[in-house]
Design a binder for these strands. Structure first.
Length: 498
RNA sequence: GGCGCAUUGGUGUAGUCGGCUAACACGCUGCCCUCUCAAGGCAGAGACCACGGGUUCGAGUCCCGUAUGCGCUACCA
């Protein structure tokens, strides 16, 4: 039987990186096994679900390069099927109507509520199975329902026995039925609940392997009970360790802000392949230790068995702007930027430069060679695509800012420098041809004549030409900026009047 | 409260059937290179493998217990 997996997010906000990682693992497994990767939007919570969120999920997957097969499924379209399944179980006596009035519950105190109820139940000697309606005769149940009395539908969990399954990641799992309550399938307003919906939809979609977050590990037993009640084959399960915040708590938008949202990485200049690569390494390790892997290599090496069981911490420091996200993610991105084929980098650069009005169409044809050379020169020290339009601005435009610290360090320190740099400009004006070698020779010669260290002129030039104190080899910069612009910039009065 | 899962340097992980002087990557420190910053090269710091006990000639690896963290326990998803 061929593998069918799915990614089933609920569209209640941005795509969380944890969810993105689940999607990745599902996708990898499908591609590895030649199976299908399906996408289902779990939009049954109408209040919280938005179209915008659905769009961002689809865009996010696309950005990561995770293409899905077959048609997109909206869970909300399957409401009737969910209800029909619940009613069938009711007919077959595998579920029952619970006429207990619905309890109002405050969302914030659920956790305490649960504990309190559990303690109270224990004190009264009740167990999960103590529901007065569990064994209500069918006729009476039918009569009360017909009379219009509201009811929820609950699964009749067997008193004795246990469910067991072999999780591909976590190994054999066993849970006694006595630990499982009679879960609600249908609310009293007829709305199907999560556990029912997933199971029905997974059956309908022919899912063979359920790969999802570890937060569903214990609930899996309930779902297995449903598969069995429904007479459907139980899929294989593989639960993934969770991704936690540095304090080992939940990674949430409210607490941690934009770091958890996938779109942030797109917007802040990540190369999709780099982020995908980083994500794959959270909870999984390639068998041979090589960590920088192409999409194809990820598919080749991936296996569910290789997934780690302990939760991973997403390591970032909110207080430090340089560590706004995980160090390794940033490193991975830089690694991709400086080593990936230019052909693949160009489209991303085009988008980035265009957004900042730094793109010129000639970069695609006449100036292609110059553009390649320039990008190659500067990409080595950049971490994100954004750096090309910020730190790299001076390479693509004459209109750039001077970094004040750089001006202080490289220009103001030496009073004669303004005059010297003007002299250098005069000298460079007559260098023929103008390139890295000749500009170097000219600069060194000029330094000798003036009796100053070459470094003084080099560093000064760097700041005059790029506005910064750091950057590539100065002579390469002269070459790339060109004679005309170099000379003009050397003579500029701007930094001197700052 | 109950149940489940996890626990290897700051972080991500590797450690097959028990032999480890505990490996790799990121980060960190220093040196080299050098016109700066990176990259690269080299060197290094950092883990009594959560703790306690047991089995064994020998335990990160097996068993039991404890602690801590996380998850689930909803007419949320």
């Amino acid at each position: 039987m061929s593998v069918r997996v799915r990614f089933a997010p609920s569209p209640t906000g941005y795509l969380h990186i944890g969810a993105a990682r689940s999607a990745l693992f599902n996708w990898l497994y499908a591609r590895k096994t030649g199976g299908k990767f399906l996408l289902r939007i779990e939009d049954t919570d109408l209040q919280r679900s938005t179209d915008e969120s659905t769009r961002s999920i689809i865009e996010g997957l696309e950005w990561l390069g995770l293409d899905y097969d077959e048609d997109l499924v909206f869970q909300s379209d399957n409401g009737p099927a969910h209800r029909a399944a619940a009613n069938r179980l009711l007919e077959e006596g595998k579920a029952y109507r619970d006429f207990t009035p619905k309890e109002q519950r405050e969302d914030k105190s659920v956790k305490e509520d649960i504990s309190e109820r559990a303690r109270a139940q224990e004190a009264e000697g009740k167990d999960q199975r103590s529901n007065p309606f569990r064994d209500l005769p069918k006729e009476e149940s039918d009569r009360r329902a017909a009379a219009g009395e509201p009811f929820a539908v609950r699964l009749k969990v067997p008193n004795k026995g246990q469910t067991r399954f072999d999780d591909i990641v976590y190994g054999p799992q066993e849970r006694s039925h006595s630990e499982i309550e009679d879960l609600v399938l249908l609310r009293s307003d007829g709305h199907p609940l999560y556990n029912l919906s997933v199971v029905i939809d997974d059956i309908a979609m022919g899912i063979t392997h359920v790969i999802r977050g570890q937060d569903h590990l214990t609930n899996t037993h309930k779902q297995i009970l449903l598969y069995e009640a429904l007479g459907a084959p139980v899929p294989q399960f593989a639960h993934l360790p969770l991704i936690l915040a540095p304090n080992k708590g939940k990674l949430s938008k409210r607490k941690h802000g934009e770091v958890v949202s996938l779109t942030t990485y797109r917007d802040r200049g990540f190369v999709p392949a780099a982020f995908r690569n980083f994500l794959a390494l959270l909870g999984w390790a390639p068998p041979e230790g090589k960590e920088v892997l192409t999409k194809e290599e990820l598919v080749e090496y991936f296996s569910l068995e290789g997934i780690n069981r302990a939760n991973a911490i997403f390591n970032f420091q909110e207080s430090d702007p340089r560590r706004w996200t995980d160090d390794k993610a940033l490193w991975m991105n830089a690694e991709y930027i400086r080593t990936m084929p230019l052909d693949e980098l160009f489209p991303m650069l085009k988008t980035e430069l265009r957004a900042n009005k730094l793109w010129r169409e000639e970069y695609d044809d006449d100036d292609r060679e110059w553009f390649s050379k320039t990008v190659n020169l500067i990409r080595e020290r950049y971490f994100t695509l954004k750096d090309f339009s910020s730190q790299g601005r001076a390479y693509f435009s004459d209109d750039f800012d001077f970094d004040e610290a750089a001006v202080n360090k490289n220009l103001r320190k030496e009073p004669r420098l303004r005059e010297l740099l003007n002299g250098l400009a005069d000298k460079l004006e007559n260098v023929e041809p103008f390139n890295a070698e000749t500009s170097e020779a000219a600069l060194r010669e000029f330094a000798d004549e003036a009796g100053v260290k070459a470094g003084l002129l080099i560093n000064g030039s760097r700041t005059m030409l790029t506005g910064q104190a750091v950057g590539p080899s100065m002579f390469e910069v002269f070459d790339v900026i060109g004679r005309e612009a170099s000379v003009t910039r050397l003579r500029s009065g701007i930094p001197w009047s700052m």
